[in-house]
Amino acid sequence: MNTISRRPLRAAVAAAAAVLMAGLLAGCAPDAQPDATSQPAVSVPSDAASGSASPSDDASSSAGAETFSYAGRTGATALELLLEEDPSAEVTGEGENAFVTAIGGRAADDSKKEFWSLSVDGEPAQVGAGTLETEDGQEITWTIETY
Rank of each mutant, 00 (worst) to 15 (best):
M1A: 13
M1L: 11
M1Y: 09
T3V: 06
R6D: 06
R6L: 07
R6S: 05
R7I: 12
P8S: 03
A12K: 14
A14I: 08
A15E: 13
A15T: 06
A16F: 14
A16D: 10
A17S: 14
A18G: 10
A18F: 06
V19A: 13
V19I: 10
L24F: 11
L24A: 12
L24C: 08
A26C: 03
A26M: 05
G27C: 04
G27W: 01
A29L: 05
A29V: 02
A32D: 10
Q33P: 02
Q33I: 09
P34L: 10
D35T: 12
D35F: 10
A36F: 08
T37N: 10
T37F: 08
P40N: 05
V42G: 07
V42R: 05
P45D: 10
S46R: 05
D47P: 00
D47R: 00
D47I: 01
A48R: 08
A49D: 13
S50D: 02
S52H: 10
S52R: 07
A53N: 08
S54Y: 15
D57Y: 04
D58N: 11
A59M: 12
S61Y: 07
A63T: 15
T67C: 07
F68W: 11
Y70C: 00
Y70W: 02
G72C: 13
R73I: 05
R73C: 02
T74F: 07
T74V: 09
G75S: 04
T77G: 01
T77E: 00
L79E: 04
L79V: 07
L79P: 06
E80T: 12
E80V: 02
L83T: 09
L83P: 05
E84P: 03
E84V: 15
E84K: 15
E84R: 15
E85W: 07
D86R: 11
P87E: 09
P87Y: 08
S88Y: 07
S88F: 09
A89W: 08
A89T: 06
E90H: 02
V91Q: 06
T92I: 06
E94T: 15
G95F: 10
G95Q: 10
N97P: 01
A98V: 11
A98G: 11
A98F: 14
F99A: 02
F99L: 05
T101V: 14
I103S: 05
G105C: 04
R106K: 13
A107C: 12
A107W: 14
A107S: 14
A108I: 09
A108T: 04
D109R: 15
D109P: 11
D109A: 09
D110H: 04
S111W: 06
E114I: 02
E114S: 03
F115D: 09
W116N: 00
W116P: 03
S117T: 13
L118S: 11
L118H: 08
S119H: 03
D121H: 01
D121P: 01
P124Q: 12
Q126C: 02
V127N: 03
G128C: 00
G128M: 01
A129P: 03
G130C: 13
T131G: 02
T131C: 00
T131E: 13
L132F: 14
E133M: 15
D136M: 08
D136G: 07
G137Q: 14
G137E: 10
G137P: 06
Q138D: 03
E139R: 15
I140Q: 02
T141W: 02
T141G: 01
T141C: 05
T141V: 15
W142E: 01
T143A: 07
T143N: 00
I144P: 01
E145F: 03
Y147P: 04
Y147E: 06
